[in-house]
Write a protein that binds this DNA or RNA. Structure first.
Lengths: 208, 208
DNA sequence: TAGATTGTTAATCGATTAACAATC
DNA sequence: TAGATTGTTAATCGATTAACAATC
């Protein structure tokens, strides 16, 4: 409400800029919106608007300070105060997400994983508990985000458990759309949708 | 070009409808656009337009035949003639994608996996080869799609190899944006972007 | 000063939603 | 017939792009 209104599309691009800025921060002090737009095949005005929405410290002729921009984006994304999350389902996909250290750069901290047949004590330093501990852990640690990487058949029931124990948002990787009550947010990662777009461009349209 | 023009957003929703229709096909013969829209929290006219774009066989009062709709969507997505793909990088994420059988339902067939340190002969029945076989395999089997699940540091070089050996599209899961030449399509799965949207809704806006 | 670059205002484009006639 | 539902046309909404003035 107090924060400047930012579009979903702009928000989706911010982590991409952030990642790029971090990759160049040792090489240069300043960068122009045009240079960024070229890197990603975007329109330069669009990049300028995106950056203007969260920073607004560009200087004509010079561009933006890479350091400042990184700070402003991290600030906006809340990277300094990460959201604590639990992950349910330590199969291959769950392990992959646990092992990927990069989420910390974007304001997410996975604090524990749960699996009905937990095989390891820790994965990438994060504790893996038996699934029956899930409810009490969420309650006691005031967890607000749940990551669901169980098979589709179990996803809804895991989701219901999470919601019943205080979770306010679920990030669902199971290939199904979850139902959540009002006041709870569900983000469904939809690999099939991305795949459909890709195959259509590949087969339908030739090489345009 | 001959096919009806369909928007990217419509295309993204088709696999979701398809999945749902398959889940109810044994229970009922017909379904209305309104019922589908309620299931996913969409607008009913939107669903009707989506379905009209690929089918157009709805009947007033009755709705759509579930069977027909499944056939029409599968037809449009090209499920009958799947795109053959190779997957590079048989780590946790690679294994997860190889193990998920669902892609076949959406027109994708992963025919082989490659890894620089291949530990298994097969995963989920699909052969895993050493990475040095990648180039010749792509050439000989006229593969057009490559799925990249290697670490970010290796993603671009894997991509370049694929492109050099006839790949026309890459589906990139490494947390980096790949550069591809004109005429080659890159779809970058951007988990950080989805995460940013989710955290923003969770923290920034309260429960709206 | 000249030129590169920002940032804003207006125009365009595409997708969603509303209104409503057609039809089984 | 009455009512549920489709499908189309018009209105709205939001995001992208173009034009251009401001400025370092």
């Amino acid at each position: 409400m107090s924060e400047k209104n930012i579009s979903v599309q702009t928000l989706r691009r911010l982590p991409i800029y952030l990642h790029y800025l971090n990759s160049i921060k040792n090489d240069r002090d300043n960068i122009s919106a045009t240079a960024i737009s070229n890197r990603f095949g975007l329109n330069d005005v669009q990049v300028r608007k995106d950056l203007g929405a969260i920073s607004g410290n560009g200087k004509p002729k010079t561009g933006y300070s890479v350091q400042e921009l990184i700070r402003d984006i991290e600030n906006f994304l809340g990277c300094g105060n990460p959201t604590k999350a639990v992950l349910v389902g330590a199969g291959n996909l769950g392990k992959a997400l646990l092992s990927y250290g990069g989420f910390n750069d974007y304001g997410l901290e996975i604090v524990a994983a749960f699996d009905s047949a937990a095989q390891a004590d820790t994965i990438n330093g994060k504790p893996v508990f038996s699934a029956d501990k899930l409810a009490s852990f969420c309650n006691e640690n005031k967890i607000t985000l749940g990551i669901i990487t169980v098979p589709a058949s179990q996803a809804q029931s895991v989701c219901d458990t999470l919601v019943a124990h205080g979770i306010k948002a679920v990030w669902n990787f199971a290939p199904t759309i979850l139902r959540v009550p009002d006041g709870v947010i569900a983000e469904n990662e939809n690999l099939a949708s991305s795949l459909a777009v890709l195959c259509q461009r590949l087969n339908g349209e030739g090489l345009e």
